[in-house]
Amino acid sequence: MTETLTVRIWRGKAEGRFESYEVPARANQTVLDVVTEVQRSLEPALAYRFACRVGVCGSCAMTVNGRPRWTCRTHVRRLGGEGTLTLEPLRNLPHIKDLVSDLTPFFEKWHKAGGRFAGTAGRQDPPQRVDPQSASRLAASAAIECINCAVCYSACDVVAWDQDYLGPAALNRAWTLVNDARHGAREETLDRAFAAGGCASCHSQGNCTRHCPVELSPSQSIAGLKRSTLFGPPKVGEPG
């Protein structure tokens, strides 16, 4: 007899219930594999979201045993859940159905924090030269690999109690732009990141950094934004 894994999955929207499913426990299975197995063999109406399955696209994040995680790179074996798995949609976001959260507010805040790049050069201009070892570029590079999975947004307690708070991902994005010599609206981005609900609302609890699947530190980016407002935006190398 094969070992089984009991999976409790949230069904419904804000109002709903947990339903339990039994799937075979395999030596190598990710949480996303389990959800796919449930959907393909037990519950065809189960709604969930994924695309790349290799930790690049950031679309499969869910709440796994109470913590937000990227499910495609989370191995069931490493969770140590004693043969059970509890899956819910990401918190702090409206629920659409089952395991799917609505990411609209997440991306709206991304723009609200000044996250849109404003180019200063046209296609006829030569590419701007950026010294990869300059302090500002190192700061931007440290924060740039965000996959927008909303795990940090879901992990953040300040987002949970303050609906206006822009959240770690949006502020992390703003910090990369403030450090980008090619961005034409660095002061404006800094202003937006500091408007009501901006980085001053952060309590430095660090849940974002703790949960970020690609090991970025939004906490550090937010601290950088706060520093910038006291001492001015970081010096970026003159575009050559």
Binding site: L190, A195, A196, G198, A200, K226, T229, L230
Partner: peptide
Amino acid sequence: MMERRLFILQRL
């Protein structure tokens, strides 16, 4: 801008 100024004032 006001939030930024208030933040600076609080820190200073």
